[in-house]
Nucleic acid binder design. Structure first.
Lengths: 140, 140
DNA sequence: CTCTGTGCAAAGCGTTTGCAAACGA
DNA sequence: TCGTTTGCAAACGCTTTGCACAGAG
């Protein structure tokens, strides 16, 4: 549970009902597309406009409250900004799960990029496959 | 230099002038967006239609001749299908470079996913930072 | 010769923009 | 109160579709 009002204000954004509910939905679901966010927040706030969601996504990404998660063959999803981690992406259901970013891998990439004068700022690792849940569904 | 005609036929697609030129452009540039591909191929084939490029991209991705490369904050790029590798993405100029996929990292991810019954099929690793070329440009 | 692929123009949709009213601080 | 944010509706631009013609095998 995060204090969204504080998070927003520290990022220089006003803590509106719409923004706090967007953040809450995203945190509860982990990773969401624009329209999934809209669908969920509009339940609590029927007059919500899709345009507002778009505007706020752009603002919150610019202010690094949110991070874009690009996934092969799917709509872009968004997650709360946090330390680098690995995404397990299910190619069946599209769900994304977080896993801690392995320290060994981190060292490998850091030294690799240092060798060639590439100033590394972010590692984005997506592992695609079929999640345990979907494997069961297929087996049955 | 690849034999695009054979590559296409083996994938069950006819070897048209448009498709071969698309593949040639993509291979020469490494990674390209839809409109960059169109801009380059239309030079050799002025009557080319954007719709043809779209249709062929979809077909060639379905037949795994091409692979989608999703990048944070940029338009989707496409590359020729090849073994897993790492993308160095420059956040300044947007250029993408390939690097061999480290064997150690590979082992780490394989065992990690095996532990939890996630059937891993593809690793996608993007490292974001500023390339050597853009660092110079900033310094001067 | 047959079936696939191409080009064009129109349709479709997701996203962005401008503006007046509402709201947060 | 003042500047920011919201909601609406229109505009925009990328992507897709349908169809007649051209081209590959």
């Amino acid at each position: 549970m995060t204090d969204y009002a504080t998070l927003l204000k520290e990022s220089g954004l006003k803590a509106t009902f719409q923004r706090m509910n967007m953040l809450e939905s995203i945190e509860n679901n982990g990773h969401m597309s624009i329209d999934a966010i809209y669908e969920e927040v509009v339940k609590k706030h029927p007059s919500l406009s899709l345009a507002t969601v778009y505007k706020n996504i752009i603002l919150m990404v610019e202010n690094t409250v949110l991070v874009e998660v690009p996934i092969e063959g799917r709509k872009i999803k968004y997650e709360l900004a946090k330390v680098d981690h690995i995404h397990l992406v299910c190619t069946k259901c599209g769900e994304v799960e977080d896993r801690p970013h392995n320290v060994n891998a981190d060292a490998v990439f850091s030294s690799m990029t240092k060798d060639e004068n590439f100033s590394l700022s972010k590692q984005q690792i997506n592992l695609y496959g079929v999640c345990a849940h979907c494997q069961e569904a297929i087996a049955s």
